[in-house]
Design a binder for these strands. Structure first.
Length: 978
RNA sequence: GCCCCCAUAGCCCAAUUGGCAGAGGCAGCCGACUUAAAAUCGGUCCAGUGUGGGUUCGAGUCCCACUGGGGGCACCA
């Protein structure tokens, strides 16, 4: 560590250097000085509106300034520390926040820590320390690294998800969700239909008879009255409605991590997103969140927010809403119904067989013998349908996700022995079971139309099943399934004729017919599944839930919160061989019997209960942390309703819109369907229950790109230190990379210890200072683009700040070298032009182009004998969001008291933007042939005359007649020859 | 396999949305300062926009096809 008294003897400072040259050592002095001042003065304290408890640095409430809430995605306090890529987003939000503050907004910017979860726990396990100790040490280190960056955060609003006081409210929100149900008919304040309601209202409705009891719970009949039901049957009914519920169902079990995972945490190839371990399907009793109840709103409300198209489309895709119909087929013989979901009811006449998933309830019983007409290919070589189906079910169940992935596309299956009647024409068709049909989607059963669906076509080919086309393929069609548009064919019966219609019309006509006949209904299906919410790990929030002898969950009262993590003999998860299918989860919290068994008085006297030993996934803490920034110390509520409305409510400022939410949320795209979907879901539950006024948590989302880096390998493939590699340009322009005399290969990718290419913010502070580092990151390119880090290019940003410094301060004496004389006309015009351009670029979050303008202005000022104050002061103010420390220092030296953080951003005079003369270009056939300086107000006629008289134009025109003249005054005239 | 994004100078990137391809930075080269070097300052070189078509008076910008790179989804009926 360096201190202010002993500035880093930097490699660039020489003994005879002027004392006040803007060197890394001076930069560090300035930076540490202003960081202390900001902290002492509370410069970035965000004020509550009048009536709140938090004031600004002067002890004042917000007044009539517009609230602006800017936020970064919650960081994990990683044990590895930061590299230069991590702060990119933090600098971007800081720049935006500082800019908005200068534009007069009441800016709230804070940073907390997402400290629960697998990474923190794994780091603790590796180092053999309790996760709380390592987590707190990591947070302290990260705070230090970030403080040195000079971020304008309100430190009073920082916290970690692991703080007991925060855990308490995470658990409180869980209880809100647990104690709520989704009423699809209720009207919301925003006018929409469907909302979460307190579970007590459901009980009231059952008790009063207003709502009929569900019949699918054992012990409940059509005649049952609520009052007559046993307490445990009532609880069973109620529990089946809760938004947080336990269920025994197939889940993603990851032995390598020792925990179950949500669908969103499993990659397409059946591995855990974290750790890349195999994931198996296993039926276990687990907590779920009924996010599917919100599928429509999560999809629809994407229209209300300002997010990158990419993320919107990823969320839409993940929710996977598809409109279609459920159609009932009749099983021949028994007369039972087999309902399928289809998005193409128009192709019903082309259904030549059906497929049910191997887990489908229809298969609990199958016919004893193969029916007449059974082909050999269908039976799998078995004597009876029963044998064939059982064996197929066993094979399918034994498949891991990885194997399923590897087999995707291959069609396997077997005939079930059932025949069904196609409802449109009564034709008998065979029912197969095959694992390409998934139990979890639609009804777990499909009608197969090989003429119109590629998967069905493949299956039909393999099992010798007939193909009927119901949409006329185009000419030159080469066989297979035709999935495109066209006119309907082969689709008529006595009561229905779709022939000749297009697909859209046929769908609609078929749906109408099905509904008239009572054979089907229009339906919407979703890809989204409920959110698996429990983890068998130590480092997470315990569930505020206990169990009695019925094994049904009981919510702890709010007064029992927080439920803190107990000490356990060993907090490492019980993990297994990654491919150990037969293993089962073993939560570490179960290792503390004294904690698990607890005596409580929950209303009927002290009794012994068992605590839930699962913990919440780390997404829980990040689902609502933005709310806590608004009201970090509130002991009575997660967030006060007034503060939420002030900072996040609908139309809380000019850009908030009807949905409200955080004004700017910056983070990586990797959370597109995890954190961002879960947080939206929780927020909507809180909205329904009246705790928040905004419909969406994040109004504007911005995904910053990644800073990547080159890495170098020698001929054995081993990585060599990237900072020791030299780039050699040969005479022919070819480039080679050399390390210790040997040629090495260059790769491009992440920054990481194992790649030996890490550059840290600390390195940058030492060699250049925080301001230069910030400026460089912001000038590298557009914020949303990934790009390579290049340490040797950082010097460009340093030169800019040095020139700026020298334009204002004498390096030797420290005296001001500016003049109070007015600026010359050219300088003034450039200044106003720069202010205008920078304002536009800043508003559009294009720091790279804003900085380019600032450099251009500064370069111009460098060419003057003395820089006029008139230009120096606005320049310093404009630079301040990027390089706040040196800007503050210059501002002070320019004679101002106090921080420039709250100074108004410079304004410009429209009159100064008008140019005296512009260059008009003269084209012939679109090619430039001449030009002239003209007045900006020149008329079309004047310009035409000038153009036609131009020698270049005349030469290009030759003898050709002029057909047409296009004038875009005052910049362009294009003469078109005939 | 399907969908989305990107491609401009040796490198990172601009280009008022269809109107002179260059704002800024890095690197290179030349010069000034210096005993010398670094730093600094001044100057300068560098592409016709991945490829092929099309629309237009005019295309980096719009349309089509392709190539390369990045990302998402992947038996979702």
């Amino acid at each position: 560590m360096t201190t202010q008294d002993q500035p880093t003897a930097s490699q660039t400072s020489a003994p005879d250097e002027p004392v006040l040259r803007y060197t890394p050592a001076l930069a560090e002095q300035i930076e540490l000085k202003w960081q202390d001042i900001w902290e002492e003065r509370g410069t970035f304290h965000a004020a509550d509106p009048t009536g709140g408890t938090l004031t600004d640095g002067n002890g004042q409430p917000a007044g009539d300034r517009q609230p602006f809430f800017v936020m970064d995605m919650f960081p994990y306090p990683s044990g590895a520390g930061l590299h230069v890529g991590h702060p990119l987003g933090y600098i971007a939000t800081d720049v935006t926040g500082r800019f908005r503050r200068m534009r007069g907004d009441n800016v709230l910017h804070a940073l907390g820590y997402d400290a629960f979860g697998l990474p923190a726990e794994q780091y603790a396990v590796q180092t053999g320390q309790h996760p709380r100790i390592t987590t707190e040490a990591n947070i302290a280190n990260m705070r230090r690294q970030l403080r040195r960056l000079g971020l304008a955060h309100d430190p009073r609003r920082s916290f970690a998800t692991t703080d007991s006081d925060y855990v308490r409210w995470t658990q409180w929100i869980f209880l809100q969700i647990f104690n709520a149900w989704y009423d699809p008919e209720a009207t919301r304040p925003d006018g929409g239909v469907g909302k979460a309601r307190p579970i007590s209202e459901l009980i009231d409705e059952f008790a009063s008879g207003e709502r009929t009891l569900p019949q699918d719970v054992p012990g409940v009949t059509a005649e049952s009255q609520w009052a007559d039901l046993s307490p445990s049957t009532r609880r069973q009914i109620i529990d089946s409605y809760r938004l947080a519920y336990t269920s025994e169902s197939p889940v993603n079990w990851c032995p390598g991590l020792g925990t179950v995972l949500a669908n969103e945490e499993v990659t397409a190839d059946g591995k855990s997103e974290r750790g890349n371990f195999p994931v198996f399907t296993k039926s276990l009793r687990q907590w779920n969140m009924r996010i599917t109840a919100y599928a429509d709103r999560l999809a629809d409300d994407l229209d209300l927010i300002d997010w990158p198209d990419k993320v919107v489309s990823m969320q839409r895709h993940w929710i996977g809403r598809s409109e279609g119909a459920e159609v009932a087929f009749t099983i021949a013989g028994s007369g039972d119904q087999l309902t399928v979901f289809t998005t193409r009811p128009d192709t019903l006449f082309g259904a030549t067989f059906m497929v049910v998933s191997p887990e489908h309830p229809l298969l609990e019983q199958v016919p004893d013998v193969w029916p007449d007409g059974t082909r050999d290919a269908w039976t799998g070589g078995y004597e009876t349908p029963g044998e064939a189906v059982r064996q197929y079910q066993r094979d399918a169940a034994a498949k891991t996700s990885v194997e399923r992935q590897a087999d995707a596309g291959k069609k396997t299956g077997v005939f079930t022995g059932y025949l069904a009647n196609n409802p449109v024409d009564g034709r008998q068709i065979p029912v197969f079971t095959a694992d390409y049909v998934l139990m979890g989607y639609g009804t777990g059963a499909i009608m197969a139309v090989p003429g119109g669906d590629t998967r069905d076509y493949e299956f039909a080919t393999q099992f010798e099943l007939p193909v009927i086309y119901t949409v006329a393929p185009p000419e030159g069609f080469e066989g297979g399934a035709w999935t495109g548009d066209g006119l309907v064919i082969n689709s008529a019966s006595d009561t229905l004729d779709l022939n000749g219609m297009d697909v859209v019309a046929a769908k609609s006509a078929m749906n109408d017919w099905l509904e008239e006949q009572g054979l089907g209904t229009r339906t919407i299906s979703y890809r989204l599944r409920d959110w698996l919410f429990s983890r068998q790990r130590y480092w997470g929030e315990p569930f505020p839930i206990v169990y009695d002898e019925t094994d049904m969950p009981i919510a702890l009262p709010e007064s029992a919160l927080p439920v803190d993590l107990p000490d356990v003999p060993d907090y490492s998860p019980r993990t297994f061989e990654p491919d150990d299918v037969d293993s089962a989860p073993e939560p570490p919290l179960g290792r503390n019997e004294d904690w698990v068994n607890v005596t409580l008085d929950l209303g009927d006297g002290p009794r012994v209960y068992r605590r839930d030993t699962n913990t919440m996934p780390n997404w829980a803490g990040s689902c609502w942390y933005y709310l806590r920034y608004l009201d970090p110390k509130n002991g009575d509520a997660a967030v006060s309703e007034e503060l939420e409305r002030y900072w996040m409510g609908p139309k809380h400022n000019d850009t908030a819109g009807v949905a409200g939410g955080v004004d700017l949320y910056v983070g990586g795209v990797e959370h597109a369907v995890l954190h961002l979907l879960y947080a939206r879901f929780w927020h909507k539950v809180l909205y329904d229950l009246g705790h928040v006024s905004s419909r969406e948590p994040f109004h504007k989302l911005f995904n910053q790109g990644y800073i990547q880096a080159y890495a170098y390998t020698d001929d054995r493939g081993a990585y060599v230190p990237a900072d020791e590699v030299e780039e050699i340009t040969a005479a022919d322009g070819s480039v080679t990379y050399v390390w210790q005399g040997q040629e090495v290969n260059r790769e491009y990718g992440k920054m990481g210890k194992s790649l030996k290419n890490v550059v840290t913010p600390d390195d940058m502070y030492d060699s250049y200072g925080a301001d230069t580092f910030r400026l460089y990151e912001m000038s590298m390119g557009p914020l949303d683009l990934s790009r390579p880090w290049e340490t040797r290019a950082v010097v460009g940003s340093q030169r800019f700040l040095q020139r700026l410094w020298r334009n204002i301060v004498d390096e030797t004496t420290g005296e001001l070298v500016i003049t109070d004389e007015p600026a010359d006309a050219k300088t003034r015009k450039l200044l106003h032009r720069t202010i205008a351009d920078v304002t536009v670029e800043m508003e559009a979050m294009r720091p790279n182009t804003a900085i380019a303008r600032l450099i251009a202005l500064n370069n111009h000022l460098t060419s003057l004998d003395r820089v006029p104050r008139e230009a120096a002061e606005p320049l310093v103010l404009m630079v301040s969001p990027f390089a706040p420390h040196v800007a503050e220092e210059l501002w002070e030296r320019l004679g101002h008291d106090g921080s420039l953080a709250h100074e108004p951003f410079p304004g410009y005079d429209e009159a100064e933007l008008v140019e005296d003369a512009v260059t008009c270009i003269f084209q012939v056939q679109g090619k430039v042939r001449g030009r002239a300086e003209v007045s900006p107000s020149a008329t079309d006629e004047e310009l035409t005359e000038l153009a036609l008289a131009d020698p270049g134009v005349q030469r290009a025109l030759g003898d050709a007649p002029v057909r047409k003249i296009i004038v875009r005054a005052p910049k362009l005239v294009n003469v078109v020859a005939g």
